[in-house]
Simulated scan of single mutants.
Amino acid sequence: MAHRRIGIDLMEKISGVVRTSEELDSYVQDVCAVALNHFPACQGVALYLVLNGGMRPVGFTTRRESDEVAYLDPNDDECIANLRRPVKLAAVDRVRGSWPGFADFMDRQGFGTVLSVPLVVEDTLIGNMGLYAASPDDFDEVDVAVAGAAAQVCADTVAAALEIIDARGLAEQLETAMESRAAIEQAKGIIMALRGVTEDRAFEILRKSSQDRNIKVRTLAEQIVSGAVDLSSASSRR
């Protein structure tokens, strides 16, 4: 009964109505964060959507400090066949032969397995949700069932959104948003390390500095990551 209640709570949290590309970007990030928090053993969550004929990463979150996300090959027939399967647990060693790049990503992240859950609407694959963990034993049968139900809710929401949103340029918008978040996360990490401040304080410094320079937060973040701007002290303005 407790598992059922928890599952219902998860469904409620990821249900919603999405009408714009900005709302879709926010929604996929929320789904990743909610899923990560729901499954205690889960170490990372990635969400992919089929856009412009390709399987593209649109959301990723992890319990570790990382902005890397695995790219799946949309032209790989075996890859697509696996992504269509109802729910599949795959250990990293089992995917190494078919997807060496994906296996290398899992190795770097310290993931030992991925619970792959397709997003399917009316027998059409529109995406995939990957739940990453250290070991296949970290997910039990209830987790697998709940993940499948959550993926269906997500698929229905995304499919409804794609009927409203102009698909042209959507893939580029979502990828740009992901790149922006990655740069900001890296910049926050640099500021935290240099100044010894919390994550929230690091973002405040980043936001205030971008306002002082009259540039976007993402632009300043990219400059910090590249070394063009030094925010190691409050007086740094080069």
Results as ranks from 00 to 15, higher is better:
Asn52Phe: 01
Arg63Asp: 01
Glu68Lys: 15
Asn52Trp: 02
Thr62Glu: 02
Val45Arg: 00
Gln43Thr: 09
Gly54Pro: 00
Ser66His: 10
Leu51Pro: 03
Gln43Gly: 13
Leu47Ala: 08
Val58Tyr: 00
Gly54Arg: 15
Val45Trp: 04
Cys42Phe: 02
Val58Pro: 04
Ser66Met: 07
Ser66Cys: 12
Asp67Ala: 13
Ala46Trp: 02
Arg64Thr: 11
Gly53Ala: 06
Gly59Phe: 08
Leu49Ala: 10
Ala46Ile: 06
Gly53Lys: 08
Gly44Asp: 02
Thr61Asp: 12
Gln43Tyr: 00
Ser66Thr: 15
Arg64Trp: 01
Asn52Val: 07
Cys42Trp: 01
Pro57Tyr: 03
Val45Cys: 05
Phe39Asn: 10
Thr62Pro: 01
Leu49Val: 06
Arg64His: 04
Glu65Asn: 08
Ser66Val: 12
Thr61Asn: 13
Leu49Thr: 10
Arg63Lys: 15
Val58Arg: 01
Ala41Ile: 01
Ala41Phe: 01
Asp67Lys: 11
Gly44Trp: 00
Leu47Met: 14
Val50Ala: 09
Leu51Val: 05
Tyr48Asp: 12
Met55Asp: 00
Glu65Met: 11
Gly59Trp: 11
Pro40Ala: 08
Leu49Asn: 10
Val50Ser: 02
Thr62His: 08
Met55Leu: 15
Phe60Glu: 05
Pro40Tyr: 05
Cys42Thr: 14
Ala41Cys: 08
Val45Tyr: 07
Thr61Trp: 05
Phe39Cys: 11
Val58Cys: 06
Arg64Gly: 02
Arg63Ser: 03
Val45Ala: 11
Val45Ile: 14
Met55Arg: 03
Gly53Tyr: 08
Gly59Ser: 08
Phe60Asp: 03
Gly53Met: 09
Leu51Glu: 02
Leu49Ser: 07
Cys42Gln: 04
Leu49Lys: 03
Phe60Lys: 14
Gly44Met: 08
Phe60Gln: 13
Glu65Val: 15
Leu47Cys: 11
Val58Ile: 15
Val69Cys: 07
Gly59Tyr: 07
Gly53Trp: 04
Phe39Lys: 12
Val58Thr: 03
Leu51Cys: 11
Gly54Val: 07
Val50Asn: 07
Thr61Phe: 04
Asn52Cys: 12
Leu47Thr: 14
Val69His: 08
Val45Leu: 05
Leu49Gly: 09
Pro40Val: 06
Glu68Trp: 11
Thr61Gln: 11
Gln43Ser: 11
Ser66Gly: 09
Phe60Ser: 13
Asn52Met: 13
Leu51Ile: 07
Gly44Tyr: 00
Met55Lys: 03
Leu51Trp: 00
Pro57His: 07
Pro57Phe: 06
Glu65Tyr: 06
Gly44Thr: 02
Met55Asn: 02
Leu47Gly: 01
Leu51Phe: 01
Thr62Arg: 14
Ala41His: 07
Val50Asp: 04
Gly53His: 05
Met55Gly: 00
Gly53Gln: 06
Gly59Cys: 05
Val58Asp: 00
Asn52Arg: 14
Glu68Val: 12
Phe60Ala: 13
Thr62Asn: 11
Ala41Tyr: 01
Gly44Pro: 06
Arg56Thr: 15
Tyr48Gly: 01
Gln43Cys: 09
Val58Glu: 00
Phe60Met: 14
Met55Ala: 04
Gln43Arg: 15
Pro40Asp: 07
Gln43Lys: 13
Gly54Gln: 14
Ser66Lys: 08
Asp67Trp: 11
Leu49His: 04
Leu47His: 07
Val69Ala: 12
